[in-house]
Nucleic acid binder design. Structure first.
Lengths: 334, 334
DNA sequence: TTGTACGCGTTATCAA
DNA sequence: TTGATAACGCGTACAA
């Protein structure tokens, strides 16, 4: 009943209830045999004193925190927070709590966060960080904390992974485009610090074009909508058509909006494709043709895999999500 | 150098380096006097063994986790993840780590999460959960964990708050609208489980209308863009004009898009105002007139306040963010 | 400057 | 069914 209570310990409960430490512990963990009367007595005392077990001490004694470390570059992107949400839903369902480690798109920070994950004593970790390469990720595995890595192909004793397959689909889209008579020149919108996922898409884009011998462009974009929109307003004063491949919806929208505002028609003059589509692809006008992977589902899957990994019964250590193309109104349906 | 190392303890380091526990501890914490030679020896051993101190044990011994609990309904909304991002930026800067507690819009879950925050032994907490009322929030204060509450007016010994002021601005907007000859009927878009923030706005909306004696409507909306869009498509078959006040950008967009697709003109026939604007207000077409509070800044401020609170030198325990109106193209500039 | 010994709040193993 | 007591890994007075 006291306000401002200092932390009540199990020992104080034991004293107040006139029993020993051990008995209180048994009551808390509902294990071992305890008489109904003593149980009642202890439980009453617990309520009365407002006792809450210290997760810290429990963790130290059991060597189990119910704590999952999540390493992400930032919580500020829609697709990442979608994934985070998927993770957290399953985590809660299974009685885990999430500890967040953000790396702000820097490899050094990411590495130091891995260190921090070790000291934090998590039961498992989910890493989604484009800056880390496979070797970096293995470092965490050497400490034998069960880990699911998203977007890196790594499989090891205590490590599994969730992969994104954008490449094949992107290749098909490009080939299809030309095969069906698409005649705009394609431009890939490069974003500084876009990470390896973007890098791989860019490589696919370039390789495919080289292979079929078509001209293409790479244009640097800013990560901010406003600046990119401004850049495109300038761009469309000179160029009056094109097919643009953008990493994210907001970049695609910047391109699309600038084109529209420059008096160009989407998709007749300017076509736009977003690589990592979110629900906003459907909200933006014209609606955005985009490749989709349900990031919430990715998060859920990763968390389920991690739990299996923790229990040592993850059989398929690698899972692939294939991107799906949703054609909307920012491209011509040929 | 070993892979698959079990956890190396401070004791093993001490043995390997031929010193005592205490000396290793001193080296780790860079405090107390240690000879350069022994320090070097210990540090070398630490590297060699790959020793990482157990945050758990440290926390238990010092009674400090460097851990901040964050209670939010879900990570899935743009404005919430923006806030989360602001919190995490400052947290990292100050050497704290974030532990996430999501409540899925249920008061019971929120209450149980508060319990969990206690057992988790955080150094402080930030609560942003619309389901909790002031009394609920005080519960955490009775355990004397420093807490910043967002969107509840509570001030107590170890509790401060960050407030949102939407009401005054909304009232002014409404009055202004009629004063300048606005003649569409206003409709407030109610969302189930929208929380107290929405509730307060709705109350302001109603009260203002009652006061000036104007007719108004309340319409229930779904939380999903797609469903709401569908509903509005039906709605606009019958109603051919209106001024709509929506809670979030996505709901406003659903209204706006449906209107446009029904052949209505925005803002000539249909005007839309978003209460909690995000960067998407600028991306959607027509761009969305919206009330804005920079949620990233809210998160930063909350975290700074919390740190002061932890150090016991927070002077102003209450901070208010005033919403700003950004007029864009979804309303008529009278 | 370094080492000893105790405490942090639990769980878990034995006895009783 | 209960109660001592030793871990868990570390920090820290205090002594050496």
């Amino acid at each position: 009943m006291d306000n401002l209570k200092d932390r009540v310990t199990i020992y104080q409960v034991a004293q107040a209830a006139g029993v020993s430490l051990a008995t209180v512990s048994r009551v808390i963990n509902k294990q071992g045999n305890v008489t109904d009367t003593t149980r009642a007595k202890v439980e009453e005392t617990i309520k009365r004193l407002g006792y809450k077990p210290s997760g810290l001490a429990q963790a130290l004694a059991t060597n189990k925190t119910t704590n999952i470390g999540v390493i992400i570059p930032s919580a500020n992107y829609v697709y990442i927070s979608n994934m985070l949400n998927g993770i957290s839903v399953v985590a809660k369902e299974k009685g885990f709590v999430l500890t967040l480690f953000t790396t702000s798109h820097s490899r050094d920070e990411a590495l130091s966060m891995i260190e921090k994950v070790i000291t934090t004593h998590v039961d498992g970790a989910i890493i989604f960080d484009d800056e880390l390469d496979d070797e970096d990720v293995m470092k965490i595995s050497s400490y034998s904390v069960p880990t699911i890595v998203i977007n890196n192909r790594v499989v090891a004793d205590r490590v599994g992974c969730v992969l994104f397959a954008y490449g094949e689909l992107l290749k098909d889209i490009i080939k299809d485009y030309y095969a069906k008579g698409g005649d705009k020149e394609m431009t890939f919108l490069h974003v500084h610090d876009g990470g390896r996922l973007l890098g791989r898409c860019e490589k696919t884009f370039v390789d495919t074009h080289e292979k079929i011998g078509k001209a293409y462009h790479i244009v640097n974009c800013d990560d901010s909508y406003t600046r990119t929109y401004g850049d495109f307003c300038d761009y469309f004063k000179i160029h009056r058509s094109g097919y643009f491949v953008a990493y994210r919806d907001s970049i695609a929208a910047a391109c699309e909006n600038a084109a529209t505002d420059a008096g160009l028609k989407v998709p007749e003059d300017v076509e736009v494709l977003s690589l990592v589509g979110t629900k906003y692809a459907n909200i933006i006008r014209p609606t955005l043709t985009a490749m989709h992977i349900d990031m919430q589902e990715v998060g859920r899957r990763a968390m389920y895999m991690l739990i299996d990994l923790i229990h040592n019964d993850l059989i398929e250590k690698s899972y692939r999500f294939d991107a799906k193309l949703v054609e909307r109104n920012s491209t011509i349906n040929r």
